[in-house]
């Protein structure tokens, strides 16, 4: 059933799904079924690695800027906004050139480095609300340093929203990987991932080979959907916990 995902079977180029090739073969004669099996690893690895990097960056940048005095905070946020205003495409091309050849690891670094800004904003907003609470003040008065306050008092509070954003970031990173690979800026065709498989779709369109486009894409979408549901589930739990406090009255009205 599974074959070598890299083996180009030139006698069976562009074959429709059938008994031997469950999902057909692509224009270069590779078996799509096994490419999906092995390519998923790379797509998921990139998703998680990039998210790890961007989450660490976002939490650090967001909490430093949230805790800093207003002036430094303004400068830091200005920088973040500046980062947001540099076209993402340019940044990606540049970073990719800096990190040399495009393999899965350098691509995850590139995606991680371009994807932390919006999360940093959320973390900062949360920290700003938290930093004037009494227990943070108490911890500071007792001599707690920045990292102590961050990890023991701030992080547990903004953890739910960061968790939700992190799951969404995994999703975005996978989308970014596939989009970049599709555009020819990400992984080369020899490195099999769901995105680089789809980079063949231009020629597939011409030869009406729907399976090259539909099947890897369907797997991609299913994965993304799972991640989204996971994220929504986490956020849903967080929301309910908050709204229990003072909104039962209006809920009753809605039910009537």
């Amino acid at each position: 059933m599974t074959k070598d995902p890299l083996y180009m079977d030139l006698a069976h180029c562009n074959e429709a799904p059938g008994k031997e090739f469950l999902f057909g073969t692509d224009t270069m004669g590779r078996d799509i079924f096994s490419m999906i099996r092995y390519g998923g690893r790379i797509s998921l690895t990139i998703g998680f690695l990039a998210t790890l990097l961007s989450t660490i960056l976002a939490v650090l940048a967001g909490s430093v800027s949230g805790c800093a005095p207003a002036r430094i905070d303004g400068v830091l946020m200005g920088l973040t906004e500046l980062f947001l205003s540099v076209p993402g495409l340019l940044l990606t091309v540049f970073l990719q050139a800096v990190f040399g050849g495009s393999d899965a690891y350098s691509l995850s670094v590139v995606i991680g480095l371009t994807g932390w800004m919006s999360m940093a904003k959320v973390v900062r907003a949360e920290v700003l609300q938290l930093k004037h609470t009494d227990y943070v003040l108490a911890a500071k008065c007792l001599g707690g340093g920045f990292f102590h306050v961050l990890f023991r008092h701030l992080a547990p509070n903004f953890f739910p929203s960061v968790l939700f954003m992190a799951v969404m970031n995994v999703r975005n990173a996978i989308v970014a990987e596939s989009t970049l690979s599709f555009m020819g800026l990400g992984l080369p065709m020899e490195e099999v991932s769901w995105g680089s498989m789809l980079s063949l779709s231009e020629s597939a369109l011409l030869s009406h080979s729907w399976w090259i486009i539909l099947i890897p894409g369907a797997f991609l979408v299913a994965t993304l959907l799972c991640l989204t549901n996971l994220g929504n589930y986490m956020r849903g739990r967080a929301n309910k916990r908050h709204s229990n406090l003072g909104c039962q009255g209006s809920l009753n009205i809605k039910k009537k």
Partner: peptide, 11 residues
């Protein structure tokens, strides 16, 4: 919202 733009376009 889960469908990547480029794939939707291809579809």
């Amino acid at each position: 919202s889960c469908v990547p733009e480029f794939w939707l376009a291809l579809l």
